[in-house]
Nucleic acid binder design. Structure first.
Length: 219
DNA sequence: CGAGCATTACCACACACATA
DNA sequence: TATGTGTGTGGTAATGCTCG
């Protein structure tokens, strides 16, 4: 099929050259149409001809560009489709591996392995979505979008952050050490946390009072 | 409101391929 | 080998949208 189309391309290019030649020689249908219309209005022949020819040429070019844009859009959709299929396959594989681990002997490792892996996958997807939303917000601001439109986007971003807290909650139940270690973060995030002097033990200090209460209650 | 532009339907044409 | 069919491509006209 590709072979056929490429050959068609060559032929149509040749065809185009031929048509252009005819156009230049004034033998095309367009020229005939222009001359017919100018016959009807025999006041200003040349300006009309020039105007019609210019319009035809512009429209020809516009149609060509429009088709190229459409082709690029379709190609982009196709590649997105392939990428999505590949991601789904990857996710499926990861889930299967998780199930496999959880069905093996050591339940502690099984849960932690599955939870951590799932969270890492979810987090990378969350980050992709976050980038998209930030870009959308940036575009809307640059385009001077209305207050309500901006509010909608910001609300979406806030909801998106709620989602990561929810995911962290689930992941912490499965493997709290994975979440505390921060190994799921990007290198840049880890760098900023290091610069800020963050230690996982800070979380214990924050909850020290609660922990005391729980322990004393149990005793 | 008119000019300019983008998109799309329709058409003609060329080509590849299948089939009688 | 002639012919029918499917497909790709480009030109033109019609239409809708935007902008000054």
């Amino acid at each position: 099929m590709a072979d056929a189309s490429s050959r068609t391309d060559t032929s149509t290019v040749l065809d185009m050259d031929d048509k252009n030649q005819r156009l230049e020689n004034g033998q095309s249908g367009a020229m005939a149409l222009a001359s017919n219309s100018s016959d009807r209005s025999d006041r200003s022949d040349k300006p009309m001809d020039q105007k019609v020819l210019r319009r035809l040429a512009q429209n020809r070019e516009a149609a060509r560009k429009s088709r190229l844009r459409k082709k690029a859009y379709v190609q982009q959709l196709e590649s997105s489709k392939l990428k999505l299929a590949s991601l789904e396959q990857e996710l499926q594989k990861a889930r299967q591996q998780g199930i496999f681990i959880s069905s093996s002997g050591d339940q502690t490792h099984a849960m932690s392995g599955n939870g951590a892996m799932t969270f890492d996958l979810e987090y990378s997807r969350w980050q992709e979505e976050e980038n998209k939303q930030i870009n959308e917000l940036r575009t809307a601001v640059n385009a001077h979008a209305s207050e309500s439109d901006l509010r909608l986007i910001v609300d979406g971003i806030m909801a998106h952050y709620d989602e990561i807290f929810r995911l962290k909650g689930i992941a912490a139940k499965a493997d709290v050490f994975h979440i505390l270690s921060g190994m799921w973060k990007t290198p840049a995030e880890r760098c900023f946390l290091w610069l800020g002097g963050f230690r996982s033990s800070e979380l214990l200090k924050v909850h020290a009072y609660d922990i005391d209460q729980i322990i004393s209650h149990r005793l």
